[in-house]
């Protein structure tokens, strides 16, 4: 997994609540057996019309935001399906940080597995950043994970909270499986005990 330390880039405003993962990446892109190449399907139905032509009104089709690295959105971002294709699509497009007042749990977790930082901030801060993001090419933000801050174009730093373990794994690009396998003995002894007390779970 790619490390996340600091990120400076254009922030795109997506001022909508309940952006679900069907919107982020619709089902016609889920038949892939790869993780890569999903950027073309990101927000597909908002980005393109029925004939596959770009919708000029959609934020990611506007000039400064075509290279956005950060997305600012409304409440409950990433609700719905557990599809990890949603963070894969964001990542493939180039977005490595999403800022919102709240996230759906599964999507939030999936981000951390893919080097994407989801930042939760109070609504009033998100709305200030949303207004800043609407300034087009001047909408450059800097996100510092170690310092837990987001700085908008005016330079003011807003601090965010994050679970310390998730932060550690993201900062160092650590993969969970390797870490978990260090507890192999504990897993074995758990299974031994459970096999004795609930043998019906073992077949």
């Amino acid at each position: 997994m790619q490390k996340f330390t600091t990120l400076t880039g254009v922030a795109a405003p997506l001022n909508m609540i309940n952006v679900d993962t069907d919107m982020v990446i619709p089902k016609q892109f889920l038949t892939t057996i790869k993780r890569s190449g999903l950027g073309k399907g990101l927000f597909f139905e908002m980005r393109f019309d029925a004939k596959g032509k770009e919708n000029p009104d959609f934020v990611l089709n506007k000039k400064p935001y075509r290279k956005a690295k950060i997305l600012v959105a409304g409440d409950n971002f990433g609700c719905g399906s557990s599809r990890e294709h949603a963070p894969w699509a964001l990542l493939d497009f180039g977005i490595r940080c999403v800022i919102a007042p709240s996230f759906a749990d599964i999507f939030y977790n999936n981000c951390f597995k893919n080097g994407i930082l989801p930042v939760i901030l109070p609504k009033k801060d998100v709305m200030r950043l949303m207004a800043a993001a609407e300034k087009g090419s001047n909408a450059t933000f800097t996100v510092d994970l170690a310092g837990q801050t987001v700085a908008g174009p005016d330079g003011e730093r807003i601090t965010f909270d994050i679970d310390p373990f998730k932060k550690h794994c993201l900062l160092n690009g650590l993969d969970d499986i390797g870490l978990t396998l260090q507890h192999g003995k504990k897993i074995e002894s758990f299974e031994d005990k459970q096999r004795a007390s609930q043998p019906w779970l073992y077949r």
Partner: peptide
């Protein structure tokens, strides 16, 4: 019972566990 992403599917296949909070 809860839904998980694909990276977690791999984690469960490999370790029969999940990191949770």
């Amino acid at each position: 019972a809860f839904g998980i992403g694909t990276t977690e599917v791999e984690h469960v296949l490999a370790t029969q566990t999940l990191l949770q909070w």
